[in-house]
């Protein structure tokens, strides 16, 4: 069969108006169904004719999935809330600015106007072999094309790779993990809540999925507890181009500093592995230490323990070290005279 791209194949479209209707459809069609949020990830797969769901369930009409609600000092963000709505929400900006910064770093304004927070955290890997339709492990094959002696893999993983070396590209995910967010998942059997850091899975667990979502599951909301409201935050994303590009790496930290010492801290790096990495070893090491350059440097060195570079991504090791350092102790700004 000859390969042809760019034209979406036919599918049956459903635009349910309620979560219950969406769940019933997802349950009914199971693996034949594709649940679409903003569609930015979806259309690539469909236009490339690589994924061919028989049914597309478009959540755009489900009003109850959209919006940011204040819940006991924290927030509940509907999964279909657009990134722009998250970025512009006054409470997010005021108390959880790490999330607005992270979400605003994603993609481009128009994508953020349509792309949803649920979609951003649930998006698939962007490895160019995988997305190019090469039948790799992640696509159900038996090979990783990005980890071969000749592969070009500057954007791939330095940690926790298991056959597949793709990374998670989300910019909002590390911010959510740093904020101890929880993901609310529903299916026709009921609702379950998982911690943001457990929402993501690596290839060793399931090489074909990025999250715990299975057919029939719907991410309906993300809850942000009051725990880190107003804490000190740091978010930085390093990318090739300042628009559209996925992170070469990003870092998010939330910190409470008392008397110059780090009292509480959560620190997360993404695009270093197939799932966002919460750096608990670093957190443990710097907790109680003064927030200064030395602590930052120590944290940076711990962060990269065990990192294994591929042929073209060795730079990610110093990058991760430096970003973690900055996430702990801040950036030394230039003072041009």
């Amino acid at each position: 069969m000859a390969i042809v791209r760019d034209i979406m194949p036919a599918f049956e479209l459903f635009q349910p108006a309620t979560v219950d209707d969406a769940l019933r459809l997802a349950d009914k069609y199971g693996k034949d169904a594709w649940v679409m949020a903003g569609g930015l990830d979806t259309f690539d797969w469909l236009k490339d004719r690589i994924k061919r769901p028989k049914v597309v369930i478009d959540l755009s009409q489900v009003a109850e999935l959209r919006g940011v609600r204040e819940v006991s000092g924290g927030l509940e963000i509907g999964a279909m809330t657009t990134l722009t709505e998250v970025v512009r929400h006054p409470v997010v900006r005021e108390k959880f600015s790490i999330l607005s910064t992270g979400a605003e770093a994603a993609a481009s304004p128009q994508i953020r106007n349509q792309g949803t927070i649920g979609g951003n955290v649930s998006q698939d890997a962007r490895c160019w072999y995988y997305r190019g339709g090469w039948k790799c492990y992640r696509a159900g094959g038996n090979i990783c094309f990005a980890d071969t002696p000749t592969a070009i893999n500057r954007e791939h993983a330095i940690l926790n790779a298991d056959r597949c070396v793709a990374v998670n590209p989300s910019d909002s995910a590390p911010a959510l993990i740093a904020l101890e967010a929880q993901m609310v998942i529903r299916n026709t059997h009921g609702e379950r809540v998982v911690n943001a850091e457990d929402y993501f899975i690596g290839p060793s667990i399931d090489i074909t999925r990025m999250t715990v979502l299975k057919p029939g599951d719907l991410l309906t909301a993300i809850r942000i507890p009051a725990t880190w409201a107003g804490a000190q935050f740091y978010f930085e994303k390093v990318r090739d181009r300042q628009v559209w590009d996925f992170p070469l790496m990003n870092v998010a930290s939330a910190m409470v500093v008392t008397g110059g010492n780090i009292e509480r801290i959560r620190i997360v790096v993404n695009a270093a592995a197939a799932h966002p990495l919460r750096l608990t070893a670093v957190e443990d090491a710097v907790r109680g230490k003064p927030r200064n350059a030395a602590t930052g440097e120590m944290g940076g060195k711990i962060a990269i323990a065990g990192a294994e570079p591929l042929r073209y991504n060795g730079y990610k090791i110093p990058l991760m070290r430096n970003l973690v350092k900055r996430a702990i102790s801040g950036v030394e700004e230039a003072q041009w005279t």
Binding site: M1, A2, I7, M8, P9, R49
Partner: peptide, 13 residues
């Protein structure tokens, strides 16, 4: 174009 794409997939080379 939809028909073109379907047709191309039916060509064997």
């Amino acid at each position: 174009e939809y028909t073109c794409a379907e047709a191309i997939e039916k060509i064997h080379i």
